[in-house]
Amino acid sequence: MHTLHQESLVIDGLIIAKFDRAVFEDMRRAGLAAANCTVSVWEDFKTTVQNIARMKSLIRENSELASLVRSTGDILQAQRDNKTGIVLGFQNAHAFEDHLGHIEAFHDMGVRVVQLCYNTQNLIGTGCYERDGGLSDYGREVIAEMNRLGMLIDLSHVGARTSEETILESKQPVAYTHCLPAGLKQHPRNKSDEQLKFIADRGGFVGVTMFPPFLKRGIDATVDDYVEAIGYVIERIGEDCVGIGTDHTQGHGHEFFEWLTHDKGRHRRLTQFGTVRNPLGIRTIGELPNLTAAMERAGWKPSRIEKVIGGNWLRLFKQVWGA
C-alpha cells in the first residue's frame, strides 16, 4: 500500500455496497479506518431495524475486519486495530416515519448519519428530483432532535430549497456527504458553486463522490477525473471542509438500481443511470490507495491529502457527534 495512504486516517463518507465479508475485506485493502455505510433508503421503521440487526450480525461474524462506530473514539480505535469502523447511516429519513421518538431509538441503535430526503418528497422536505416545497414544520422538529442527539444531517439527494432551509435551521454543521459540482456537469444531483459556498460559509461540509453518471466524463472517467472534481470543489470552498464520499455500490446488480431509481422503490421512475462503472483506477473499494497516489500526481501537498481522505471527516464527526 502507498505510504502516505498507509500512514493517514482514511474515511469514506458514503458506501452503499452489498455488505458482506468480501466488502469488509476490500475495506481493509483500502486502508479505511471508517465508512458511513447505508442501512436504509426506502425501507420503513421495522425493515430498517432488521437491516441494522443484519449489519451488526455481519460485524460480529467478521470482528477481525470490522467494528461498529458510535463515537470518533471508535474510529481511532478501529484504525489502531487495523479494522474498518462501520458508521450506520441512512440515505432517507423515511424510516423515522411520523414519529420523533424513532430518531432517538435509531440513535440508541448506533445510527449517526441521516440524509433527510432521498430524491423525492417525504414528511420532512423534498428531494432533488421534484419541485421543492422546502422544509415542513415536522422537518424543523426532526432537525432540532437530530441536533440534540448529535446525528449528522446529510443533504446530498435533497432539493435546493429544502437544503438551504436546513442549513439555516440546523444548530450543527450539515453535509453533502456525496455530491459533485454542477460546474463540471449539469445534473439534478450536482451542486452549483453557489450551493457549495452556501453550505461551506455556514460551517458545513462537502463530501465529493465519484458516481459515474454525475461525473463530467461519465463511465469514461478515471481516478484523475475524480481528483479534478475534488480539486474543483476545494478551489471554491477551501480544503478544510471537503472529504470523499465515493458512493461505492459494490456487489449490487441491475435490480438494486431499479429499486433505488423508482420513488419509494416501487413507483414512478425518477432517473436512469445507464451503465454504472466506476472510474478507472478506483473501480473497487480496495483500490482507494490509488486515489491518494492520484492526488500526489496532481501535486497536492501531503497536508491537504491527509485532510481530504479522512482528517476533515473526523473533525466534522467530532463536532456533530460530541465527545
Score class of each variant (00 low, 15 high):
V142C: 07
I143Y: 02
A144L: 05
E145V: 05
E145F: 04
M146S: 13
N147G: 09
N147R: 12
R148T: 09
G150P: 06
G150N: 10
L152D: 04
I153K: 09
I153L: 13
D154A: 12
V158A: 15
A160P: 13
A160E: 12
T162K: 15
S163T: 10
S163I: 03
I167K: 07
L168V: 10
S170K: 11
Q172L: 14
P173L: 06
A175C: 15
T177R: 03
T177S: 15
H178L: 10
H178M: 14
C179W: 00
Q186D: 02
Q186C: 00
Q186A: 04
H187T: 04
H187R: 06
R189A: 10
D193A: 12
E194Y: 10
E194Q: 13
K197G: 03
I199C: 15
I199T: 15
A200Q: 06
A200F: 09
A200S: 14
D201H: 11
R202L: 11
G203A: 06
G203S: 04
V208W: 05
P213K: 02
K216H: 08
R217Y: 15
I219D: 15
A221S: 15
V223F: 02
D225I: 05
Y226Q: 01
A229S: 13
I230Y: 13
I237L: 11
E239T: 05
G243V: 03
G243D: 10
G243C: 06
G243W: 08
G245E: 04
T246F: 03
Q250S: 15
G251R: 11
H252P: 06
H252R: 15
H254E: 14
H254S: 12
E255I: 06
F256T: 03
F257C: 00
W259E: 11
W259Q: 03
L260K: 00
D263Q: 14
K264T: 12
R266S: 08
